[in-house]
């Protein structure tokens, strides 16, 4: 097995054994609960509209970034904190491969949990109805968003020991508040890219998914942001130093 897959497999086992994984699984059960409630309430909205908002919009706004934050910061930041990162970093492997393994594991775990919750919630709302293309579009977008958030938060965990706090600030202050009041800032928000991609991939009418950015632009910006985050993280890991203790 090559080094990337070895690191990814070990990290996945590590992530799945942590308490925070239980937290993210419970977090991603919330949209399913919302879907059950939505299904039982009388409304004029179509199933496609309901699955887009509130059910999967909530997943995009909160479940996706928080799941990625909890898992991606644990994937490498946790190991740096407890000292076990040394066992990986003292091997004759280019550091970018270790980073790739970590990102693969964080992405895979985030996508698996978020997509499972989203698919189940979507299926509850759409069962016996139309609008499955909206669910399909969201699943594609959530898969892409898992990668971008994973890369961003992995980078944060290499830049600061307070990555969790920095990530929470990004999700709840930058993406939730600042992007609503400062025009143009949406172009620097993974949340907006995810909604844009969902809109593009679903092929749904414009009123169904509330996206401020075009799908293609969202795809390009998400790729650029992810590439920058990975490049910064790889550079940082290549020059990694143990914190000072005499």
């Amino acid at each position: 097995m090559n080094a990337i897959l070895l690191v990814a497999a070990m990290t996945a086992r590590q992530l799945l054994g942590q308490r925070r994984t239980i937290v993210v699984v419970l977090l991603n059960a919330v949209p399913v609960l919302v879907a059950v409630i939505v299904r039982t309430v009388e409304t004029d909205q179509s199933a496609a509209q309901l699955v887009a908002s509130p059910v999967l919009e909530w997943t995009t706004l909160f479940m996706l970034p928080l799941t990625a934050l909890l898992l991606a910061t644990a994937a490498l930041g946790g190991e740096i904190e407890d000292g076990t990162a040394v066992y990986l970093l003292s091997k004759p492997i280019p550091r970018w491969r270790i980073l790739a393994g970590k990102l693969l594991a964080a992405w895979g775990a985030t996508a698996a949990i978020v997509l499972a919750g989203a698919a189940l919630a979507g299926a509850v709302v759409l069962a016996g109805e139309g609008g499955w293309n909206v669910l399909g579009g969201y699943l594609v977008a959530l898969l892409a968003g898992s990668f971008a958030y994973g890369a961003l938060f992995l980078m944060l965990s290499l830049l600061t020991s307070r990555a969790l706090l920095a990530g929470v600030a990004y999700v709840f202050i930058w993406e939730s508040v600042i992007t609503n009041f400062a025009p143009g800032v949406q172009r620097a928000s993974i949340r907006e890219y995810t909604l844009g991609i969902a809109d593009l991939a679903s092929g749904a009418p414009a009123s169904v998914i509330d996206a401020d950015l075009g799908g293609v632009l969202s795809l390009i910006l998400m790729a650029v942001v992810s590439a920058i985050a990975v490049a910064i993280a790889a550079r940082r890991l290549a020059r990694f130093e143990l914190s000072g203790e005499a």
């Binding site: 070990m10 086992r13 590590q14 054994g17 407890d82 000292g83 076990t84 066992y87």
Partner: peptide, 8 residues
């Protein structure tokens, strides 16, 4: 440091 991967 004492830490190893406890699940392995």
């Amino acid at each position: 440091r004492e830490a190893v991967y406890p699940f392995l």
